[in-house]
Amino acid sequence: MSAAQDLHDLERIQLDSQWLYRQGDLVLGPLSGHQVVEKLYTGELTGKTEVSASGPSGFRKLEELDAFQLHVSKAAVKLKVEAEARAAHARRRSQRLMVGGVAALVLSGLGLGAWHISRYASVYLPGVDRELDIKVDPPVITVAKRSVPEELFEYPGEPKRPPVANKPPESKPLDTPTEKPGKPEKVASASPLPKPGRTPGGRPTGKVTTDADGLSTEVNYDMASINRVVKQYQSSLFRCFKEEAERRPGFSAKVPLEFTIGNDGHVAQLWVDHPQLKKGPLFDCLFGELKKWPFKPYPGERATVNLAFTIGKK
């Protein structure tokens, strides 16, 4: 009984004593035994911390002192539990951040996809764009007559070009035949040009007179096929007009186009009958799209297609 009492008294004395402790090369303190215990539970001191109550020469580890051994064990368990709780909390936070990042990425992807779909729909699907109204006149197909863009149209406010007069053919002296008495001279009559024919489908064929001099040209393009291609692909030009409307707020105009289809089936030339749109981004966009239209190759005279677009706000 006296030994237990002595041990209890020793622990009480150690807790009431003043202690110095080491941190690296520094000696700090003094602290009471109760302050040492508090620092054990906060993690500032551990069982390996050396302390001394008798001066610099008597340092011992806290885990070796009877008064602090129980507190060293309890503090170690407490700090371990707290560390595990902090780690679990950090894992949960990391998981929440990851889930939030994935959700944000999915939402941004859906938003970007919706933007692309709406842009595609507004350009390529008729009736989707409620702001810009585009109407197309039926195409007119003729034989190509001119290849110089400036000769195609006359614009308001521009001086009219003087018409080029057709130069009459030079007259050549005729050899006067020697007339024999009693025999009248025979006069050769010019044979008429053959009239052009048409196939049941409406495609012009054969020889067709195309100019005032009576020169005949051969037309072999299929008007029905050209009309089908124009009807199928004319909406691909809407994107060009919508982009022009973005560049020109309030853009509204009637824009007649005239393009020539080469014998290889590709659009070879384009003219825009509008004084402000003869050249520029709209012209380049229209020409680029028209070159993609798959017309059938054909021999003979080339075909010209006149197509007019009316652009305005709904």
Rank of each mutant, 00 (worst) to 15 (best):
P194Q: 11
P181W: 08
K61P: 04
R130W: 07
T217F: 01
M1Y: 12
A308K: 02
P162A: 13
G100C: 09
G113V: 05
G109N: 04
R198N: 12
N227I: 13
F68R: 03
R146G: 09
E131D: 07
G24A: 06
C285I: 03
G262D: 13
K291L: 13
G55I: 12
Y233C: 09
V51I: 15
A75F: 02
Q14A: 15
E301W: 02
S108Q: 10
F283H: 14
L277K: 03
S191Y: 11
K254A: 09
L174V: 15
S122F: 01
T46N: 01
D211G: 10
S54A: 11
V27A: 04
V164S: 03
W271F: 15
A75P: 00
K74I: 05
G127Q: 05
K186V: 15
G33L: 05
C240S: 12
S235M: 04
R228Q: 14
F241I: 05
D211E: 09
K74G: 01
V123F: 11
P200R: 11
V255T: 02
L20V: 01
V37F: 03
E131M: 03
G206M: 01
K313A: 07
E244V: 00
L152I: 14
T217Y: 07
S57W: 10
T210L: 08
K183Y: 15
K195L: 09
F259N: 04
V81I: 15
P56Y: 07
V128P: 00
M223N: 04
P184I: 13
H116K: 08
I134M: 03
K314E: 07
H274V: 08
K180M: 02
V187C: 04
A75M: 03
L270P: 09
K296I: 04
V187K: 07
K296H: 02
F287G: 07
G47C: 02
E179T: 01
P149W: 07
H71N: 08
S108A: 15
N263T: 15
A224K: 12
D175Q: 13
V187W: 06
M98C: 15
T260K: 06
L10Q: 11
T217Q: 09
Y120A: 13
A268W: 06
D66L: 12
A165G: 06
L28P: 00
D129I: 07
R228N: 12
F241C: 02
Q232H: 10
T209W: 00
V140R: 04
V140C: 03
A268V: 11
D66I: 13
P249F: 05
A87V: 11
Q18Y: 08
G111S: 11
H34V: 14
E218F: 11
K135V: 14
A85K: 12
P196D: 10
A85C: 03
H71A: 06
I261W: 00
L97Q: 13
Q18T: 07
Q18L: 14
V51W: 03
A90N: 10
I226V: 14
D9I: 08
L15S: 06
L70T: 14
K186D: 10
E44K: 06
P196T: 12
N263F: 10
T42M: 00
V305Q: 02
S94F: 14
R93F: 11
H274T: 07
F259Q: 05
R22C: 04
P162Q: 10
K61F: 05
F68E: 01
